[in-house]
């Protein structure tokens, strides 16, 4: 359906914006390494199911893309364009996010099986993975416009999945409660950012926190 397609496209575009921003400016200023590491974890734990579950060639290619691009971005951030200044303000305690997601995945899953727990873990972790990045924005008080486009596209992906789930619930009778709940949590976390993005960036102002 259209929402899912738009969501996936938005997800893809977000990564391309980020890669393009880093490569062109040859800098990772203002980008949270911790958030990027969390995304590697999210993609690895959710998408390694491609080794034992086949959905479609589209699904497989997208999974491979997200796993490899996220690892590549972390590689660029650590080795190629290391930025100690940015690292110093990247102080969000992600061990709590990882630990919390792990505990929640043990409690909420569809089956108490390794693959299912990993899947649930990735959903919980993804819902909060942007926090170090938003925390960094809050500390610096402003961001490069491209960085805000990246965050917006990344947030739009999960937000667009919400009407997709409603659509699938109506048309297929399928409901994935975990994905829906974590998707809503994620969208709420983004809501503040969306609001500022809409009011400032889209109207041509710089991204500055009020």
């Amino acid at each position: 359906n259209i929402f899912r397609a738009a969501g996936d496209l938005s997800h893809l575009i977000s990564i391309l914006i980020l890669l393009n921003t880093i490569q062109k400016s040859r800098s990772i200023a203002g980008i949270s390494l911790k958030t990027q590491i969390l995304y590697v974890l999210v993609f690895l734990t959710r998408y390694l199911d491609l080794t034992y579950r086949y959905v479609s060639i589209y699904n497989t290619l997208m999974k491979l893309f997200f796993i490899s691009s996220s690892i590549y971005i972390v590689y660029l951030m650590i080795y190629k364009f290391k930025n100690t200044e940015t690292e110093q303000i990247d102080t969000f305690p992600i061990e709590y996010l990882i630990g919390g997601s792990f505990i929640l995945s043990l409690i909420f899953n569809y089956k108490f099986q390794f693959g299912e727990i990993l899947w649930s873990f990735s959903l919980w972790l993804e819902s909060v993975a942007i926090l170090p990045q938003l925390f960094m924005l809050q500390r610096t008080g402003e961001a490069r416009t491209l960085t805000t486009h990246y965050i917006f596209a990344l947030g739009a992906y999960r937000t667009l999945y919400i009407p997709n789930w409603i659509f699938r619930w109506i048309s297929e009778g399928r409901v994935d409660y975990l994905a829906i709940f974590t998707g809503i949590v994620q969208t709420i976390i983004y809501s503040d950012f969306f609001y500022i993005y809409y009011h400032r960036v889209l109207k041509g102002f710089k991204f500055e926190l009020p």
Binding site: R4, D8, H11, Y47, D49, R53, V55, S56, N59, M62, K63, F66, Y110, W119, Y161, N164, W169, E172, G173, R174, V175, D176, L178, A179
Partner: peptide
């Protein structure tokens, strides 16, 4: 509502 959740999304 179907019980089986298929992980076919990204």
């Amino acid at each position: 509502i179907k019980n089986e959740v298929v992980h076919d999304e990204l």
